[in-house]
Design a protein around this nucleic acid. Sequence first.
RNA 1: GCGGGUAUAGUUUAGAGGUAAAACAUCUGCCUUCCACGCAGAGGUCGUCGGUUCGAUUCCGUCUACCCGCACCA
Length: 508
Amino acid sequence: MTAPASSETLMEDIVGLCKRRGFIFQSSEIYGGYNGFYDYGPLGVELRNNIKQAWWRDMVQRRDDIEGLDSTIIMHPKIWKASGHVDGFSDPMVDCKESKLRYRADQLFFAPVNVDGETIGYVSVVECIDQQEVAEKAAAEMKRKMAKQGELGPIVLKDYTESKPEEHALIPSPATGKPGSLTEPREFKLMFETKVGPLADESAVAYLRPETAQGIFANYKNIVDTGRVKIPFGIAQIGKAFRNEITPRNFIFRSREFEQMEIEYFISPNADWKTLHREWIDTCTDWLVSIGLDRDGITEDIHPEDKLAFYSQATTDLMYQFPHGEQELWGIACRGDYDLKQHQEHSGKSMTIFDEAAKEKYVPHVIEPSLGVDRTLLAVLTAAYTEDEVPNDKGVAEKRLVLKFSPKIAPYKAAIFPLLKNKPELVERATALYKRLQRRWNVFYDASGAIGRRYRRQDEIGTPYGITIDFDTIEKDGTVTLRDRDTCEQRRVTEDELFKFLEEQIDG
RNA sequence: GCGGGUAUAGUUUAGAGGUAAAACAUCUGCCUUCCACGCAGAGGUCGUCGGUUCGAUUCCGUCUACCCGCACCA
C-alpha cells in the first residue's frame, strides 16, 4: 500500500513540497534566484539542525575517542597550498565547439607535425598511456594524406596549457580531428577567492574553504597537545564549505555553499587499517539507518585502486538512491599520512605523536568519513516522502502525502490540538499541555479547522504524533488521544504516559 | 560551459494581441464531539530588461532561474 519514495519520487515533488511547506527556498528568490545557493526555511532549519545534532551526539558526545572542533572558514592561504587545493582545484578547460566535448587543458596534448623541417599541421590526443604512439600514427597518417615526401620529424607532445595563442586555431579537436573548433583554455576556479586586509593586491588573496577537513589537520597539533588524546582518536567538525561548481544541479545535492560533517580518525601506521576502514563503513551505515534511511537503499561503491585519488589508499562511498539516481552520500577514505606530512613539510612543525602503548613515535595515518549535511537532508526527505491512502469519514480511500521522518530528526515532535476551538475548556487544557511540552521539545499548537485537516497538515510536514484534548480529557479521566502519523491509529494515554512515550521515541 | 525545453496566485494548471481564470493550499470570522465538512471574506505590477504595435502577460530578442541530455565534479 505504501510506496517508499526513493526511485519513483520525482525531484520536482520534493522541491515543490519543500517550497510549499517552508523547508527549502531558492536563495535570493525575489531577485530571480541565484544558481547553486539555497536557503532553509522554518521547517528546514529545524530538520537540518536535528540531523547535525544527531550526528554530533552520536559521533562526538557519545564516543570517548572523538573530540569536536570548530575552525574558521577562511584560513591561511598556505594551508590550501599544502593540501594541494590551490594547484589541483583550478583546472583550465578547453571546449570543442563542434563535438561539445570538454577537455582539461593539462590532459589534452598536441604536437606540430614537421616534414623536412616544415610544419604541415598539428595532431592532438587526450592523455592516455600510449599517447605518444597514437600521436605518431596520426602524424604519419597526416603526412600520407597530404602526400608529402620527406623526413617526418619527431613528435614532441606538449599539453594545451603550454600552447601559444597563435597555435590555437591550428590544433585539431581530438574528437573531430579538424582544427579550429577548440576554445581558448578557460580557468574554472573551484575555490572562491576573497581578499583579506585593506590592501586588495595579490598578496591578500585568501580562499573560502572547499572542505572542512583541512581545518582539522591544521589544528591536529593543538588538540594533540591539549586534549590528552591517545591513538586511535578522531577530530570531528561540522561546518560550511564552498565550491564554485561548474554546474550546480539536482536541488541541494550539489550546491556552491554547503555544509559538511567530517571526521579525521587518526590511527597508527602499523594498524590494520583495512579492518578499521570496514568498521567505519559499518558505523556510518548504521547511523544513516538510525536517522530513517532504508538500509536496503544504501549501497557501497568501492573505488578501484587505479582510479583512486593520489593521496588515497582506499575509498568506499556509501551510495543512496536519490530521486535523480544512485549517488554518493558518504565518502569514507583512507588518506594515509598524506595530509599531515604535507602540513609538516610546509609549516615546518612536527606532526608526530608519541604512542605510549607501542612506545614509538610517528605521524599517524588517517581515515576520513566525510558527509554532506545537505545531501543527508535530501536523502532523509527522499526516504520520508510517501504517498498512501487512508479512508475519510465516509470510508472512501483518499490520497495522503506524509513525510515519515524519524521522531529523532522530525522538525516538530508532536502537535497539540483542542478537539474544538470554540470550547474554552478544551482550548485552555490544550494550551497548558502545549506549554508544558514546549519546554522540552519543539512542538506545534493548532486549533483551527476540522481535526482531520489538522492531522493531514502535520502528516505533510512529518510531525510523528498528534495529541488531541477532547471531552473525555476534561470530564472523565484526564487522558488524551495520541495519534500515530504513519498508521493513523489512536490510543488514550495519561499525561505521564505521554511524556514517557515521547522521551523514548525522541531521545532514545 | 554546450544543445533542447519551460517560466501566469503559495502550489498545480487554464487562457486570449485589448489591463486574467479554476482547483487546492494559506489567513480571518461563524459552525463543527476524531482523519482534507459547510458558509462568508482576503490576496496577482502573468520571471527580468528591451524591441515590434495605437495597445504585449500573449509575437521577437537579451538576461536570470528551473528541468532533461552532454561535459565537469583534486
